[in-house]
Nucleic acid binder design. Structure first.
Lengths: 225, 225
DNA sequence: CGATGCCATCAGGGATTTCCTGATCTATTC
DNA sequence: GAATAGATCAGGAAATCCCTGATGGCATCG
């Protein structure tokens, strides 16, 4: 078996699991335990515990879900990043939106994989991230690419940062559930202008329909706590 | 003679896992494999496959998630119930609303447990359901009881459990960002029918526009972690 | 300076969705 | 068996979506 090599020459890399679903943790443990070069050193579903465990166990990599029992995974990523710059972080979320992937990467994560992906991909993702690379789910990559298709270079900023002030204003109002007419009235604009803003926003965020736009706007709005 | 009757005298009870998260399936397999009286005979994340597997494998019990790749778990429960009345069914959902527990039980399920519960409870739940009992998560029980205590609320509250099963299904799909046409296609319905469902939902929830409906649906969907 | 690019504004027009009303059939309830 | 609720679908006017294109303002850069 080729796995012998790892066992002989290198210690196993340690993985900390942070996910608020016990069954998902169980699944991850099972899958990871089959990899000869990886071992799970700890698990939790809470942000506070995750920080404690990171300190105590000093893992090589953390696999982090975005929705945790006591808060937002993004916040955890930022904290771990600032305190343990060497720690690799792979986000494993059930939300398949690049919206979150970008935010996660920007917050300091090194990869994003969603739970619907075949379990086998997790090992690949972990190894790639441990090797210093960035791992993204194929569909996330596609989404990001279409989102940045019209740009010269993929800047590190979130797509939403690319919105102009006016566009952001419209985006925000969309997130409130306002109709095009209402927005036009509130901003004293023509309905046609608002429609154009919506088109621009969609293009910049790589969205394909009004429904998608609305969904992202609402999510973003709710994310702003 | 041994006290462990099932190990000697009875075959292991077979479990079919229906869940659209590969990692959760993995976790369930791991947990169930530790029970001496239970064995996993099959797994899938799709309604169609679930029906096929139920026919081929004739499991003793199915553990079913409500959100599946190609539709609603409640629908699956109804179909399995009508075709295999002997089949026991335990719902294992990430949605912790008693709303769903009641609907699941009414649709023919024999238990409801949510994924946040400790993995150990799953075995208990499976055994109780196999023994002919109804299993409900403690918090679900509590919710139902308190719900009975409050009984009818003033209609101004506009609650989601006013929605019929079909309406809830549509509401759910709206929250996923699906368009009316997509929903119609997925449910094999006329667009007009879906439109009517949307109208009904709006009326029941006290909403005034498509935007409001979308916003609430997305918000609700996100709350179901 | 002139070219270029981004921004904000608005229009045309066909395709699609929304919104309101009403109809039919079925199942359940009282 | 009448009443109520659910699920299904249709018609038609209003609103919107979506794509394309246009205008003027303002900045930057070579």
């Amino acid at each position: 078996m080729r796995s012998r090599r790892w066992q002989l020459n290198a210690r196993k890399r340690t993985v900390l699991i942070v996910d608020d679903h016990p069954l998902v943790r169980e699944g991850l443990k099972g899958v990871i335990s089959e990899a000869a070069d990886l071992t799970v050193c700890g698990e939790t579903g809470k942000i506070r515990e995750a920080q404690d465990l990171a300190r105590e166990l000093n893992p090589d990599i953390a696999i982090i879900d975005l929705s945790l029992e006591d808060g937002n995974g993004l916040e955890l990523i930022r904290r771990l990043k600032s305190r343990y710059p060497e720690l690799r972080m792979l986000v494993c979320s059930m939300r398949d939106e690049s919206l979150f992937a970008e935010r996660a990467i920007n917050s300091g994560a090194h990869g994003y994989i969603n739970k619907h992906e075949v379990a086998g991909h997790v090992i690949d993702a972990l190894r790639q991230v441990l090797a210093g690379k960035i791992y993204l789910s194929p569909d996330v990559v596609e989404r990001i690419i279409t989102g940045f298709a019209h740009q010269k270079q993929p800047t590190a900023g979130s797509s939403i940062d690319e919105l102009s002030n006016r566009e952001l204003e419209v985006f925000w109002l969309i997130g409130q559930g306002r109709s095009t007419t209402e927005i036009a009235k509130q901003l004293s604009l023509s309905v046609k202008t608002v429609e154009t803003h919506r088109e621009k926003i969609k293009r910049k965020l790589g969205l394909t329909s009004a429904g998608q736009l609305m969904r992202h706007a609402v999510q973003w709005d709710l994310e702003q706590r």
